[in-house]
Amino acid sequence: MTQQLAELCGLVPPPAEPVRADWDEVEHDLGLRLPTDYKGLVDRYGDSELGEFIRLLDPRTLAPTAREILDDEIPLRAQWPHQYPYPFHPEPGGLLGWATSRNGDWLCWLTDGDPHAWPVILWQRRPMWYHRHEVRATGFLHGWLTGRITTLVLPAQG
């Protein structure tokens, strides 16, 4: 367990029995390798809610959810391309959601390059707004929960 994940577990105790993922199957369905910090996070928390505002997605739903988002957003992107600076997975290098907020915002990765270097993109769908964070999933959650990462979309913590 990484230091950041250990500190996160101290801030938000993980559930006794989180949902377990078959990572080979999840990655096969996505056609992507996933960051190891995220796997450790999900192995500890499953699809739990953190900070009473962010819910980790069950990893088994990542691929179908990505296809659903792409289908929903393609017609809108065709009408308003300036509001869509990023592609959507399964498009190459596309956004892939891994958590949601109670307000319907998405925490995504920009899946370009090495999975261990994917930035977190906070995506507010309506009205359209993006905020890029050069941290991994665990780092984002830890930073937000301790108040070191702030954003206009998520309520202040820490």
Rank of each mutant, 00 (worst) to 15 (best):
M1K: 07
T2N: 01
Q4G: 11
L5F: 05
A6L: 13
A6C: 04
E7P: 00
L11M: 03
L11T: 00
V12D: 00
P13Y: 02
P14I: 00
P15G: 02
V19T: 08
R20V: 13
D22Q: 05
W23R: 11
D24M: 09
D24N: 08
E25G: 10
E25T: 11
E27D: 11
E27L: 14
H28P: 07
L30T: 08
L30W: 04
L30Y: 02
L30M: 14
G31E: 00
L32G: 04
L34T: 14
D37A: 10
V42Y: 12
D43N: 14
R44L: 12
Y45L: 05
D47T: 06
E49D: 07
E49I: 11
L50T: 00
G51N: 07
E52W: 14
F53A: 13
F53S: 11
F53W: 14
I54M: 02
I54C: 03
I54T: 03
I54K: 02
L56N: 08
P59D: 10
R60D: 13
R60A: 13
T61I: 09
T61G: 08
L62T: 00
L62A: 04
L62K: 01
A63Y: 03
A63S: 10
T65H: 12
L70R: 12
D72P: 05
D72G: 13
E73N: 05
L76P: 12
L76I: 12
R77M: 09
A78S: 07
P81L: 03
P81T: 06
H82D: 15
Q83F: 11
P85F: 09
Y86S: 06
Y86Q: 07
Y86V: 12
Y86T: 10
P87I: 10
P87C: 11
H89G: 04
P90R: 06
E91G: 11
E91W: 08
G94H: 04
G97I: 15
G97P: 08
W98N: 05
W98L: 10
T100C: 12
R102C: 12
N103W: 02
D105I: 00
W106V: 12
W106F: 13
C108W: 02
C108Q: 02
W109E: 03
L110W: 06
T111E: 00
T111L: 08
D112K: 15
G113K: 09
D114A: 05
P115W: 00
W118M: 06
P119N: 04
V120R: 00
L122Q: 10
L122S: 00
W123T: 09
Q124K: 15
Q124R: 15
R125E: 03
R126F: 06
P127C: 13
M128S: 15
Y130M: 12
Y130T: 12
Y130A: 09
H131Y: 15
H133V: 15
V135I: 05
A137Q: 06
H142I: 11
H142L: 15
G143P: 07
W144Y: 02
W144Q: 01
L145T: 07
L145C: 07
T146R: 15
G147K: 13
G147M: 12
T150W: 10
T150D: 09
T151W: 01
T151N: 11
L154P: 00
